[in-house]
Design a protein around this nucleic acid. Structure first.
Lengths: 331, 331
DNA sequence: GTGAAAGCGCTAACAG
DNA sequence: CTGTTAGCGCTTTCAC
């Protein structure tokens, strides 16, 4: 390659890394030769020689759950034009897999790591803490960031959503959950706390599955719940998928939403606003979360120390017709 | 590291690559030292020294569209336990971005590449053809694979779905499309051909948007269509998202599905079976597609030549209640 | 503005 | 089974 352009290796290297370091004419000649030969520099050699990888590792538990794909979107858009690449791994909700992937990723000496959740194994935490790169935990917040965090409190969000159902006049509020990962469990805790405070908690009105969240699962869980607890007049779903399934199952059973049944989902997926009736949900700023995670990482790499190590992006209960039912009615 | 265990570099290397090459005692000592020091080998150095990367590059146009996340699931599950890693890029439906990412990926000398679609730019095709690794194009099939292909004919699938609507007794069948990527256009061609053959094609009954597919978009497109063409009695949607939006909009307008309006989606997303009524859709084997792509790649790397360079996974029109309307009625 | 030389941290023969 | 010896293809001082 260097020979093809009649210059030394170093000049080619310079041209490719920072064209301004090279004289116009030389640059032209080199770029022409690169185009002609279809030369593509070796990433491994560059990484080894420079000691930098320009890769940001991203570890999430699922690639099919919209919750994470939205965050990924945010990360991709935040990274665009920065010269960094994303290396993306799928931990499939398995801590051991996460640990393994973490090792693989760290062996690439990434410029930074973004990892979902705050519930890593001890080993994973240590690997992250020892990593010679900034780390951002996303999706959740907690008291002990490995390094930085950007997320929101799932417990507080679920508490607010449940409270909204109570305020809307519903009295027998059930909980539907899937996957049962740590964030789901924290949402359940929020639900439970809100109902306990209102003196309305009933452990029987809970239906869950370890399967992934889906519309089908929502319908099935609600069918079981409705058969078992006919007195239930509202459902808080751990995910909008489930809520949509409940909506369809309610339709099949002739339960009016929101009159006979109040319905609240979580995550405010796009369809929640478009459905009929609209489904009340909890909006979380997932794209923003991805962008901020990248921002924190890049900031640290620039030497800027972040204002805060833990960024709480908050949430918002978006009330729609699915919970409009009992508000106007006599209690 | 080698020093910490009191052995030579090569022995450490061997232990980490293939523990059986090393004596039990030595291995123990080395592994202990690795654990104690938290040593993680440099990926770049290994890749450079061995000339292999053990990375499979995957390029898809979107990480939020379920169509691609399903394929990714298949790829991840196919790769599991093989020792290969996935490097995943997001081309955002932009050919120039695809080209750029392709360069980045190839500079890592991947063991293989999986890339969505058959419509790469000339430059991208050349890069792929020149790449020193097997390449699988997925999602679609066509006459000229760069190397290998696994997918199905979008035109044939849309043709069959449209034909199903006609056979069900619908006469004024509209088309709703979003994103308008090459595969969408091919589906439109299939729709058009099927209706033309039946003498029912009307260019006015088409409503599209360049925005990504979504439930909201489906509702909006149908609202526009229904206002403009009240005679429409069935809709073929380019994606199930859109179909769900149509279902909700039909509900708002008091159009019975399937009596007043036949509805057919595409992709057979999970919710199509769970909705009320169930939405007729076209099932495509996306997870299988991902798995087969990995299989083809690994096969080639093993030296096995594939039986066929182009694998057609086919499709299946899954008839549900949303298209049960006019069948029993007099035409 | 450009070239020469010295590695980056591993792997891959080849001995022993 | 283990150590030794060369690089892999770049980047990076340091001269010129």
């Amino acid at each position: 390659m260097a020979r093809a352009a009649g210059v030394s290796e170093s000049t080619v290297s310079r041209t490719l890394r920072d064209p301004t370091l090279v004289a116009e004419a030389t640059r032209q000649r080199i770029l022409a030769a690169v185009a002609a030969t279809g030369y593509v520099p070796s990433y491994a050699a560059r990484a080894l020689a420079s000691g930098r990888a320009d890769v940001i590792g991203v570890l999430v538990p699922s690639v099919t759950n919209h919750v994470f794909t939205d965050v990924l979107e945010g990360i991709y858009s935040g990274i665009e034009g920065t010269g960094f690449d994303i290396q993306h791994g799928n931990t499939r909700y398995q801590p051991e897999l996460e640990e393994g992937l973490l090792r693989v990723f760290l062996s690439q000496r990434p410029a930074g790591m973004i990892i979902a959740g705050v519930d890593q194994t001890d080993t994973s935490r240590r690997l992250l803490a020892d990593a010679q790169c900034p780390v951002v935990q996303i999706m959740d917040i907690g008291p002990e960031p490995v390094d930085m965090m950007v997320g929101f409190s799932h417990e507080a969000a679920a508490h607010a959503a449940t409270r909204h159902l109570v305020d809307a006049g519903y009295r027998n509020v059930a909980f539907l959950g899937a996957q049962m990962d740590p964030r789901t469990l924290r949402r359940f805790a929020g639900y439970r706390a809100a109902l306990s405070e209102a003196g309305m908690f009933d452990a029987g009105r809970v239906e869950t599955t370890a399967d992934p969240s889906s519309v089908t699962a929502g319908a099935a869980l609600f069918a079981r719940l409705a058969d078992r607890c006919p007195e239930v007049d509202a459902v808080f779903c751990n995910n909008d998928d489930l809520a949509l399934g409940v909506l369809f199952e309610a339709l099949r059973r002739g339960f009016d939403v929101p009159d006979r049944l109040g319905l609240c989902g979580f995550n405010d997926f796009e369809f929640a606003a478009a459905s009929e009736p609209g489904i009340t949900s909890v909006r979380t700023n997932r794209r923003e979360m991805g962008r901020r995670a990248v921002e924190l990482l890049l900031g640290r790499l620039d030497g800027t120390d972040p204002a805060a190590r833990v960024v709480d992006l908050g949430f918002e209960v978006v009330a729609r017709r699915s919970t409009a039912g009992r508000a106007a009615m006599p209690a």
